[in-house]
Structures are given as C-alpha cells and as structure tokens.
C-alpha cells in the first residue's frame, strides 16, 4: 500500500457516497446514467470473483462495499426512483463497449483461465464505463453540481492509481502493463471533463458545456 493507492481508493469511496447521497436526498436519479451504473456493477462482479478464494481484510472489505453499493444504486434506479430516470437521454450503445472489452480480454489475458479472462474484461470495461455518463452530460449540455462532483471523484480515483503504478514500478520487480494502459485510457477519457470541472465548477459557476 502507498499513499496514492490509498487516496485513489478513498476517492472511489467518496464518489459512491456522493452518488447515493445525491439520489437519496433529492429522491431522484436524474442526470445519472443507468447504463454506466450497470456497467460498473458488471465490472465489480467480474473483477472481484476472487472474493470466493482469497481473503485480505482491506481488499475484501472494499470489494464487498463496491459490489454492494453498486447493486444498491441499481436498485434505487430501477425501484424507488425509476420515474425520475429518462431512458431517452441515456442512449449510448454499450454493446460496443462490452464487445470490445470481451475481445481484448480473450486476446490478451495474463492467463487463459475463466477468472483471469473475466478480470481482464473488467479492467478494459472499467476504462470505458463512464462513457454513457459523459455522453449523457454532453447531450443535456449541463449537469447538476453534485453530479459533477461525483464524476470528478470517480475520475480522480483511477488518475491517482497512475502515480501508484509509477511508484510500484520503481520499487518492485513486477508491474502490470494491462492495468496501466487501461488506467491511462480511463484517465484520458476524463480529461475534458476535468478541464471543464476545474474552469467552471471550482470557480463557482454552473457546469455547462461551451
């Protein structure tokens, strides 16, 4: 463990807290992409299969929190707050994301075992899972401030993993090229958003696309 990874994981937890807080206080999931949330649940379920055969207090606890909170968000979106979700603006074609991640996972896993292929699939899928959400923000041209905080915290999580990987590359004999490439792609996808978030939201203005 190092400070970058810990900070990244904390941002991930914060993003989930912001999302659930936004939905339960406003009793609405407007502005949140159901498709992105469904992809995240798929990411966590396929990546954390090792819960069944490995245990480490920190990691196992976090994995259960990520799967549980993700399932809870989907429950809120399909149950109590379903009337506030507008499928007409959540139209990103996720089949290409799932298909692309599946092809890359089958071609380049570290090992050709079901668990490793699913792990690789989850890494690639996570790198693009935010696209339906960003697409939705782009379509509507604006987002509630709390939604932008959520997207920022989620982006900061993987961005902070990058210095973690650099640190680990310098201090150990192993590295994980697959996670690094996917993590960099993931961070790049957020970069436009980070820029607008920094120039608008942090200076007290509404998040509106130019």
């Amino acid at each position: 463990m190092n400070i970058f990874r810990l900070a990244g994981d904390l941002f991930h937890l914060i993003s989930i807290f912001i999302l659930i807080h936004k939905m339960t206080t406003s009793k609405s999931c407007s502005g949140i992409s159901f498709k992105s949330q469904a992809l995240y649940l798929l990411v966590y379920v396929t990546r954390y299969l090792d819960l069944f055969w490995t245990f480490a207090l920190y990691n196992s606890t976090m994995k259960i929190i990520f799967i549980g909170s993700s399932a809870y968000v989907l429950h809120l979106m399909t149950g109590p707050f379903k009337p506030t979700h507008d499928p007409n603006i959540d139209t990103f074609k996720v089949r290409y994301l799932i298909g692309g991640a599946a092809i890359l996972a089958l071609l380049f896993p570290y090992k050709w075992t079901p668990a490793e292929v699913l792990w690789t699939f989850s890494i690639w899928l996570e790198s693009v899972a935010i696209l339906p959400q960003l697409f939705m923000v782009q379509r509507t041209g604006a987002a509630e401030t709390i939604t932008t905080h959520y997207i920022f915290a989620l982006g900061a999580y993987r961005a902070l993993y990058i210095p973690n990987w650099i640190y680990r590359y310098l201090t150990s004999t192993f590295w994980d090229p697959l996670s690094i490439i996917a993590g960099v792609i993931q961070t790049v996808l957020y970069s436009d958003f980070f820029y607008i978030y920094y120039t608008k939201v942090l200076q007290g203005r509404k998040f509106e696309l130019p």
Binding site: R5, D9, H12, D50, T54, A56, N59, M62, K63, F66, Y110, E116, W119, Y161, R168, Y169, T173, F174, W175, D176, P177, L178, S179
Partner: peptide, 10 residues
C-alpha cells in the same frame, strides 16, 4: 521487470 497482474489492487 516481470509483467504480471498485481493481485493486491482494487
């Protein structure tokens, strides 16, 4: 350096 999956990350 060996390219392997870092098993201890989330």
């Amino acid at each position: 350096k060996e390219a392997v999956k870092l098993h201890d990350e989330l």
